[in-house]
C-alpha cells in the first residue's frame, strides 16, 4: 500500500509539473493556434537561470528562503523575456503565413535555443542545488512523500488558482478569452491583439520557468536537453486534456503523470517515455479533441 501511495504522489508531482508547462502550450494554442515548440526550451532556460542565480547567491551566503525567492524571480523574469522576444522574432512576422510556416519556425527556434545554451554553458549535466530543505513535520511520512513533492504540489495549486482568477475575473483575462474566441472580432471591439498575444507568451513562459525551477530542484540535475522531452510530454498532456482548454491541460497533466508513474512503477522503467508517446498516439486516434476539448468543426 505504501508503494501505491508513493507512486500516487510521485505521479501527482510529475503531473503538476507537466501542468505548469502544458498551460503555456494550451494558452498559446488557444490564442494563435500555434504549437509553440520552443516552449520546452523556455522551461529549460528558466531552470538554467534559476541554477545560475541560486549558485551565485549560495556562494554569497544568502539564506535558503531568499535564494528560492530570488532564483525563482530571476527565472520568471528571464523566461518571460525570452518568450516575449521569441514571439516577436519567430512568430509575429508569420501571423498570416500558411500553417506550416510558424510550426517550422518554432522548431528552428527550439533547435537554436538548445544549442545556444549548449554553446554558452555546457553539454554536461549540472548538479542543481537542493533549494527546498526537508521539513520537520514531514518526518513520519518522508519515506512516501518528500518535502519537495509537497512544495511542488502546493506551489502548482496556488499558481493554478491565481491563473484561473486572472483569466476569469480581470480585464486582461477577459481580453484573452475574447481574442481566443475570435481574433478579428476582438480587434474590432478595441482589444490590442498584439499586446494580448505578448501577454499570453509572457504568462506561459513564467509558468514554465516556475516548473523548470521546481523540477530541477526535484530531480537534482539540469542539462540543455531537458526542455525537449519535457516539452513533448507537456504537449501530450495538453492534447490529452483538450488543447486550448485550461482545466483540460491540468487534468491531462495529472492523468499523464499518474499513468507514467504507475507504468514505470509496476511495468518497467526503461519504457517510461514510450508510455507517454503511446498514450499520445492513442488519444489522437480515439479522441483527437481530448478529454475536455470541444470537437472543432471547420466552416467553409
Amino acid at each position: 500500500m505504501d508503494y501505491f501511495i508513493e507512486l500516487l504522489f510521485s505521479g501527482l508531482t510529475r503531473g503538476s509539473i507537466y501542468a505548469l508547462i502544458a498551460l503555456g502550450y494550451t494558452m498559446v494554442y488557444g490564442i494563435i493556434g500555434l504549437i509553440n515548440f520552443a516552449h520546452g526550451e523556455i522551461y529549460m532556460i528558466g531552470a538554467f537561470t534559476a541554477f545560475i542565480v541560486a549558485t551565485i547567491l549560495s556562494i554569497l551566503g544568502f539564506p535558503a528562503l531568499a535564494i528560492i525567492v530570488l532564483a525563482g524571480l530571476a527565472a520568471v523574469v528571464w523566461s518571460a523575456s525570452y518568450g516575449y522576444t521569441i514571439e516577436k522574432i519567430a512568430y509575429k512576422p508569420l501571423r498570416h503565413a500558411p500553417r506550416l510556416s510558424p510550426l517550422i519556425s518554432a522548431i528552428g527556434m527550439s533547435m537554436f535555443l538548445q544549442n545556444y545554451v549548449l554553446l554558452a554553458q555546457t553539454s554536461d549535466f549540472l548538479p542543481f542545488p537542493q533549494l527546498i530543505s526537508d521539513f520537520n513535520f514531514m518526518e513520519p511520512v518522508a519515506h512516501i512523500v518528500g518535502s519537495t513533492d509537497l512544495v511542488i504540489l502546493v506551489t502548482t495549486t496556488v499558481v493554478m488558482i491565481c491563473l484561473t482568477i486572472l483569466i476569469k475575473y480581470t480585464k486582461i483575462g477577459k481580453a484573452m478569452r475574447a481574442t481566443s474566441q475570435d481574433r478579428m472580432m476582438a480587434m474590432l471591439v478595441g482589444i490590442n491583439v498584439n499586446r494580448i498575444i505578448s501577454v499570453t507568451f509572457i504568462i506561459g513562459s513564467s509558468l514554465a520557468a516556475i516548473g523548470g525551477m521546481l523540477i530541477a530542484s526535484h530531480i537534482g540535475q539540469i542539462n540543455f536537453y531537458i526542455g525537449f522531452i519535457a516539452g513533448i510530454k507537456a504537449f501530450t498532456a495538453a492534447v490529452l486534456g483538450g488543447i486550448g482548454s485550461i482545466p483540460g491541460a491540468v487534468l491531462g497533466s495529472v492523468v499523464l503523470g499518474l499513468t507514467e508513474s504507475f507504468a514505470t512503477g509496476y511495468v518497467s522503467s526503461d519504457y517510461e517515455d514510450v508510455f507517454a508517446f503511446s498514450l499520445l498516439v492513442l488519444i489522437l486516434i480515439f479522441k483527437p479533441s481530448g478529454i475536455l476539448g470541444k470537437a472543432d468543426t471547420q466552416k467553409v
Binding site: L34, I35, R99, L100, L103, I232, F235, T236, V239, Y271, D273, V274, A276, F277, S278, L280, V281, L284, I285, P288
Partner: peptide, 25 residues
C-alpha cells in the same frame, strides 16, 4: 492510417513521438 486523419500540427507531434518510440525501442 491512424494519424493522417489529424490536422497538420498534431501530425508533427505524433510523428516526432513515433521517431522517439522507435529509437527508444
Amino acid at each position: 492510417i491512424p494519424v493522417l486523419r489529424l490536422r497538420g500540427d498534431y501530425l508533427a507531434i505524433v510523428t516526432l513521438g513515433f521517431g522517439e518510440i522507435i529509437r527508444l525501442i
